[in-house]
Design a protein around this nucleic acid. Sequence first.
DNA 1: AATGCCTGCAACCGCCACAGG
DNA 2: GCCTGTGGCGGTTGCAGGCAT
Length: 297
Amino acid sequence: MGRAPCCEKTGLKRGPWTQEEDELLVEYIKKNGHGSWRSLPKLAGLLRCGKSCRLRWTNYLRPDIKRGPFSPEEEKLVIQLHAILGNRWAAIAAQMPGRTDNEIKNLWNTHLRKRLLSIGIDPQTHEPTTISSPLVGPLKRPPASPSTRHMAQWESARLEAEARLSMESSILLAPTTPLLTNKKTNTDYFLRIWHSEVGNSFRNINIKGEKIACSSPASQASVSGMTIEMGPKPEPELSSSNPEPESKPDHKSIHLYAGFTHSSSSNEVEDSSDTALQLFFDFQGQNDMSFLEAHFN
DNA sequence: AATGCCTGCAACCGCCACAGG
DNA sequence: GCCTGTGGCGGTTGCAGGCAT
């Protein structure tokens, strides 16, 4: 495909897999498990690199893969999960048994992205691409960091969910209130995602010494090597002695300044809280989370 | 029928995180 | 703390098949 080989694989086969190769790979893994992918090809008698074998297995040969077109419900779920997780295809795939990250990524790039664009929604931010203002006319929303937006949306949703659940519990416990049904609420599904694999990346937070408290004024945490800072946005250092006009972008730092208060005027905060969350819930007029119920049951 | 264009998707690549020495 | 090996992830590519001209 016109690129340099990823590893030393002169003599190794590339390109589409043949049925014989598939059978060899499946047979070997059925008998021995995949073990070390690096050594698998040699042991299985394949002239492929381990990476290629792993990809073929995880994206195509795994027995639990559900093949065939995505249902409208699945597409909807992908859109909603993308609104929460962004381009973290593996995390999205983890919430969709039988679907691979590659499949979901392809679906997104070939169908869903275009569909959202065609209805005027930015596929990265899940917000309308233009906002018209009576005073200044149509204006383009300034681009926000997708990671920041998605993490903030996720955290906002979790907090809201827990607050609602707490309220519902108190209502339920109150002797004078009408009985609530057992019907699962939207809140439940958010919490269930929160406590699933997806939520892990947010919950497995190591803060230097202490467990994070999202409502605390200033917290710092790291998730998968990223730094998350929460709390009031610090004043920018306007040091004239610093000749560097803009600092080098740090892809591993995410700032959620004051993201969970109600009174901040920060654009980032505004982006990441109510508006985005509402759009997320209201997408295409969908206001219930029944699709999640189907997913979890 | 021939050709060119478009689309879907399997496969590849580079990068990153993590574990072990 | 550094180095190396390995697995995993996301972005990208290019082939194959379908469709339009």
